[in-house]
Simulated assay, not measured.
Amino acid sequence: MKNNPFKPTDAVQNDWNLSSVVSALRHSRETAHNIRHKGRIRELPSREALAQILQGLLAVLFPTHLGRPDLNDESIDYFVGNTLNSTLAVLVEQVRRGLLFVTDADAENDATLTAKATEITREFAARLPEIRALLVSDLLAAFHGDPAASSPSEILLCYPGMTAIMYHRLAHALYELGSPVLARVISDIAHSSTGIDIHPGAKIGGSFFIDHGTGVVIGQTTIIGQGVRLYQAVTLGAKRFPADDNGVLIKGNARHPIVEDDVVIYAGATVLGRITIGKGSTIGGNVWLTQSVPPGSNVTQAQSQSQSK
């Protein structure tokens, strides 16, 4: 009978010098290389809890598609109310943990954080009908914009672009309400599951459609108008990162594109810097664009290369 390669043998069990390693790791963690926020915060938002929250919120927004398919007119409101209540109860604690990162108070002992988290969560819940209206406009834009789509239900259930924008609209609301760390974790959950990276600070108008989606990147200060369509591997990014006199990056500046209404940006295009893509423009595949273009423009790869010379 062969030995199990995954079972430790008696001969090596006491050879790790664990006490010394654990002690050295403690010194690194607590003293030499302490990376905790402000040197003390241990209560971090939980990705597992946020995944549960997202599942609950999507079930509330689209109960029969993403909640329970057996719901009827008599049970649907009960399901929505019960699911929303339990989801918000979990969310408020995650919001409180996120607030630890944006306060200068002795946050671990600050009783006002719970009240602030409750206020943010209540306001977030009040925005859900507005968020759903935006998502329905995104859903219909995808259905009307993709000839391969057989129904809005198909898009809701299996289009990664739709999943990414659902997560983004929820994350963006939390970002605006003062919970940026929590929103950032949600955007990373979306990125992990869809391959689409949208910063929660990005402002995106209604009827937004990401077709195929993999590799799309949308930066923090991007502003996108109504009826915009992006294809896979599009980047709306920053051209440069200015630094102060000490070489530290200056954060918070508007450094990403403004994309006006009814713009289409095809696969692989890279649009960088605080430039404006005028209303109704079309940006071709694999274009590299660092200059503003007026409304109604049609930019091809050859044109963008000529502009850059």
Rank of each mutant, 00 (worst) to 15 (best):
P8F: 10
T9L: 12
V12H: 08
W16A: 11
N17R: 12
S19I: 11
S20P: 00
V21H: 08
V22Y: 15
S23F: 13
A24Y: 04
R26Q: 13
S28F: 10
S28H: 06
A32W: 10
H37I: 09
H37E: 11
K38R: 15
L44M: 15
L44S: 03
P45H: 08
A51Y: 04
Q52A: 13
Q55P: 00
L61R: 10
L61D: 12
P63E: 13
P63F: 08
T64P: 00
T64N: 12
R68F: 02
P69V: 07
L71I: 00
D73N: 12
D73W: 11
E74Y: 07
D77P: 00
D77H: 11
F79Q: 06
T83I: 03
T87D: 13
L88V: 06
L88W: 08
E93I: 05
Q94F: 13
V95E: 09
R97G: 03
G98Q: 07
L99K: 03
V102R: 02
T103E: 13
D110P: 03
T121L: 11
R122P: 00
R122T: 10
F124P: 02
F124W: 02
E130C: 02
S137D: 15
L139F: 12
L139P: 05
L140T: 03
G145Y: 03
G145D: 07
P147L: 07
S151I: 06
Y159F: 15
T163I: 03
A164S: 12
A164M: 09
M166P: 03
R169P: 13
A173D: 14
A173E: 15
L174R: 02
Y175V: 07
E176N: 12
G178W: 11
P180R: 14
R184N: 06
R184A: 13
V185K: 04
S187R: 02
S193W: 02
T194S: 08
H199V: 07
K203A: 11
I204V: 07
S207W: 00
F208K: 06
F208P: 06
D211P: 09
G215M: 05
V216S: 07
G219R: 03
G219M: 10
I224E: 01
G225A: 14
G227A: 01
V234A: 15
L236V: 07
K239Y: 07
K239T: 02
F241A: 08
P242Y: 04
V248Y: 06
G252L: 04
N253T: 07
V259Y: 00
E260W: 00
V263P: 02
I265Q: 11
Y266N: 09
A267T: 10
A269C: 14
G273N: 01
I275Y: 03
I277D: 00
G284L: 01
N286S: 14
V287C: 15
W288N: 09
S292W: 05
S297N: 09
T300Y: 11
A302P: 02
Q305H: 04
Q305L: 15
S308M: 10
